[in-house]
Write a protein that binds this DNA or RNA. Structure first.
Lengths: 247, 247
DNA sequence: CGTAACCTTGAACTTCATCAAGGAAGGTGG
DNA sequence: CCACCTTCCTTGATGAAGTTCAAGGTTACG
């Protein structure tokens, strides 16, 4: 895995919050919110900010887990594959989600940068050490895991019981409400965003084929539920109207 | 002569352990394994063993959460419903699983006894109080949640990418390997079990219709992958052969 | 012994997948 | 900067998997 734009933090001597943490979503709403400034400084000795281009494989299936990460920017795609190559996207992670399966020695899925991403990588040992010192950190990890479980179960309903049209609408709704971590989903009335996934990825997320996804998008466009600019840029004039299509 | 700092996995041969805890799977492999005998005694003051018949609603959707439970015997079915009535089973819980969504004020799913079950109910307050005292308890809860997340994601692959035949085989495989908590899935070569779910439930778990489930079961029977006694009692002569059908 | 719930099977139909072709977008090297 | 290539996306025609509708059989239980 080739990394771009690596920044190492080793020039911190006082009890100020590390510079990179100050603007980090994970500091506020992610797991780092569990830590006081001394702990942050300690942790920051081991973390590295890493940027990756879209398409980069972050964690391979069956790979040994040696580090975790916080998603600082961009979208990460989690996938599983059947032995014959059929693929299923089992989750998307946005800032400030935690990336990695705590207490697993081997990854049971693969993680890929869906868009350009920046991550704050934490070596496994460092996180585990910090966890022993801070029950609050483990608490945050539990909250994060519960959130992911809620999302996975919601998605199971989409996969199991929704029609192709409802699946595609649900996907767009998910992206619109999650892509910008600074926006409050409850207050959105309209939205404009760049899709972080290809049509193939969307199909793999929805349990459909590319063709079906494409046809359903066309249908949503013709029904004025969405406008499509340049294939990847979408406009949702009325989130309410989109939500009605979600089943 | 009370032991101090006892490791959690070992049995403690101590007469102070509450009677009901002694034979409880949750004591060994569930969240109660986090507790020492003093803590168990404290917790047992608040817990109640409850038996429920198949079909009983344990937690209703949108219900306020006032208690949690450990599954001691039987199978619990977790479901979500779309506004028009379409239903999806999003998980099954076996002994010694923990039942309930920590830190949620309101349940976002409904839980029903799929078979006759016995539960060890814990009032919300009692568990939360115990959690503050014991980081190890919160750790166990994290492990349980991670396990459920792994299972949910595995099932997403089944829902999204498997054929009806593969789905039904996967379901039978899941039940065969989970129904008896005392059996090791890795060492099973054949199996006999009572299905805890109706055909409708199975369909709702697999994202199929009853008719399709029925047809696929008939096919598996004709292909000698399974034998069916009395509709609910199944025999799997070769787990290996069943696994081959899971995709 | 009769009723209700559950399960199976068949036939017609629908939705989505597959197969096939062509079009836009983006990056690369001439 | 343009031509080319590759990757991504759309659209149409055809077909298969699974749903829907309908009927009858089985099982459990009062």
């Amino acid at each position: 895995m080739r990394e771009i734009g690596v920044t190492t933090r080793k020039d911190i001597h006082n009890s100020e919050i590390p510079v990179l943490c100050k603007s980090c979503e994970a500091r506020h709403r992610g797991i780092c919110g569990a830590l006081d400034s001394d702990q942050l400084i300690e942790l920051a000795k081991h973390t590295r900010q890493v940027k990756q281009h879209s398409g980069a494989e972050l964690v391979a299936d069956s790979e040994e887990v040696n580090s975790y990460a916080n998603v600082m920017q961009g979208v990460v795609k989690l996938t599983k594959m059947l032995s014959d190559g059929r693929q299923q996207v089992i989750g998307l992670q946005f800032a400030p989600d935690f990336l990695g399966r705590p207490f697993a020695t081997e990854s049971k899925m693969s993680a890929e940068a869906a868009s350009d991403v920046s991550l704050c990588k934490i070596p496994r040992k460092a996180l585990e050490a910090m966890m022993k010192e801070s029950p609050e950190l483990e608490h945050r990890l539990l909250m994060q895991t519960l959130k992911e479980l809620d999302e996975a179960r919601d998605w199971m309903v989409t996969l199991g019981r929704k029609t192709a049209a409802e699946k595609v609408a649900s996907f767009l709704y998910l992206i619109a409400t999650h892509i910008d971590p600074s926006l409050d989903p409850d207050e959105m009335t309209s939205a404009k965003f760049d899709l972080p996934l290809t049509r193939v990825d969307i199909a793999d997320f929805l349990g459909l084929t590319v063709e079906t996804v494409s046809r359903q998008l066309t249908k949503l466009r013709k029904d004025d539920v969405i406008q499509i600019e340049h294939n990847r840029t979408f406009i949702v004039p009325s989130m309410e109207r989109l939500e009605l299509r979600c089943g």
